[in-house]
Design a binder for these strands. Structure first.
Length: 479
DNA sequence: TAGCTCGTTGGACAA
DNA sequence: TTTGTCCAACGAGCT
């Protein structure tokens, strides 16, 4: 009794409950459907499409090694593609891992109803979260809005509830006649080769994910709490794109870290786990407050973050890493060249855009969406609203990052700025994060003419900070 | 129920 | 240089 494994963002064979259900049912058709128009705001951006292409290729390789292959279809709707494959194969069941963006939920509900109406088994599984959003509620049965109590409750359910499901060791072949499009036909890769540097930093696919996880556990876990804040050092796990595409599930990550902890008393996973917790919380918020896709979680801020929507000079400087503020430029260039940015720097560039520049967070969110390989709707929207001060965060509005002080505190050696803003490489550390204050002879000795080799700041940090504070204080919410 | 405490990631300024 | 305090007011979640 043939079953379709409808593959979405669960591009792995190990610990995959949808695949496991399909295997129990009978011969499995691994089907990837490309129907981005259906996904709304969650349709992958350019950098994520690059990842998706290579991850699908990797999955196809794994499937072929086991005797199967990936079936790829592009279609106007997933439902249409599923019907075609069902008609061609006589499949009697479809299994998939859940997604949590509003458009995806609506699509899946409709698909499930139609398939069941046709007499098929249609079931969805939790393939990407530690806790389903509806499992973790306050005692009043309402969704949490504050991280700490949420995470406490989530952990109370047990992070390591079930044993991981082993990957299949062999698969039955997909029927010969069942057509599949070549991956290239999906046109996921960029026309202009801006992705040239990506391969130096990333290996999409389940194998690459495990290599990254093992590397992190070996090198990074012990010093994680302190090292994670320093963008110039490889102190973070860099698992975010692997998790987004489901090449690893968070349960597998938890399990691997717990096992490592048993053998090493220095390895304390709790800080790292709480980062997984933020990922969970972001999905929890998106599920329970679906309007946050493009509107503030708190309606009080409706209409506030739009004022300099069309300030092209500031916007252009920000996107291109030419603001004249070294840490910000380093981050934006790291993003452009690698498809990723260190988390602390994400907060700092977002703070500059939304507060100092007073450009709407939605604009920054969409830029990140297109340029991050780990772009994840729940995380991205959550992070931007958090920084802008209109999301699930109780912090006061006067928290505005100062990119100079942040640079001096967390990139004191200047490794990060020197790497991504090489024109400043010869500037002494004392001036590296504030080149506009450097004496003329220091700049000369470093081979820098401000305004020529490196921009003067496009915005006055102190004045714009005050401007943002005034704007916040003066805003009384929508009428 | 009503009250209490607390809120990932900060900055400025004074001492 | 480091440390402490303040910067609004609120509302979530617990007791």
């Amino acid at each position: 009794m043939t079953a379709i494994w409808w593959i979405r963002r669960d591009l792995r064979l190990a610990d995959n409950p949808a695949l496991a259900a399909a295997l129990l049912h009978g011969p499995v058709i691994p089907l990837y459907i490309h129907a981005p128009d259906e996904e709304g705001a969650a349709a992958p951006g350019a950098a994520a499409r690059w990842w998706l292409h290579h991850s699908l290729a990797a999955l196809d390789g794994q499937l072929r090694a086991l005797g199967s292959r990936l079936v790829v279809r592009s279609a106007a709707s997933a439902q249409a593609a599923l019907r075609e494959v069902i008609a061609a194969t006589g499949a009697e069941a479809v299994f998939w891992s859940r997604q949590y963006a509003p458009a995806q939920i609506a699509r899946d509900q409709a698909v499930k109803a139609v398939l069941r109406g046709m007499g098929l088994r249609a079931e969805s599984f939790n393939g990407s979260l530690l806790c389903e959003p509806w499992e973790v509620l306050t005692r009043e049965g309402k969704p949490y809005r504050i991280f700490t109590p949420y995470w406490k409750a989530c952990q109370g359910h047990g992070l390591d509830r079930a044993d991981p499901i082993a990957p299949p060791s062999v698969l039955l072949p997909v029927p010969r006649g069942l057509a599949s499009e070549p991956l290239q036909a999906l046109r996921l890769l960029p026309d202009i080769p801006w992705d040239a540097g990506f391969h130096d930093h990333w290996t999409p696919g389940e194998e690459g994910a495990w290599r990254r996880l093992r590397q992190f556990i070996g090198d990074g876990l012990a010093g994680y709490s302190a090292a994670r804040d320093r963008p110039g050092h490889a102190g973070t796990s860099r698992l975010s794109p692997h998790l987004h595409f489901g090449e690893l599930g968070p349960r597998q990550v938890v399990r691997a870290v717990l096992e490592a902890q048993q053998g090493d008393p220095d390895a304390d996973g709790s800080r790292f786990f709480s980062e997984l917790g933020w990922r969970e919380f972001a999905h929890h918020i998106l599920f329970h407050f679906p309007h946050t896709v493009d509107r503030p979680m708190n309606p009080r801020w409706e209409g506030f973050f739009h004022r300099h929507e069309a300030e092209p000079r500031l916007w252009q400087a920000w996107t291109r890493g030419q603001t004249g503020i070294p840490l910000v430029d380093a981050g934006m260039r790291e993003l452009w060249q690698t498809g990723w940015m260190h988390n602390r720097v994400r907060m700092i560039v977002a703070s500059l855009l939304t507060k100092n520049m007073q450009i709407g967070w939605q604009q920054g969110e969409r830029w990140f969406w297109d340029t991050l390989v780990d772009a994840d709707l729940a995380n991205n929207v959550f992070g931007w609203q958090w920084t802008a001060g209109c999301g699930a965060d109780a912090a006061p509005y006067f928290r505005i990052f100062n990119p100079v002080l942040q640079g001096e505190r967390f990139d004191g050696e200047g490794d990060y700025v020197r790497r991504w803003v090489p024109e400043l490489a010869r500037l002494p550390g004392r001036w590296l994060h504030r080149p506009w204050e450097a004496p003329a002879q220091v700049l000369r000795a470093a081979g820098i003419t401000l305004g020529m080799d490196y921009p003067r700041p496009v915005i006055d940090l102190a004045a714009s900070r005050q401007g943002a504070l005034d704007a916040f204080a003066g805003f009384r919410g929508p009428a």
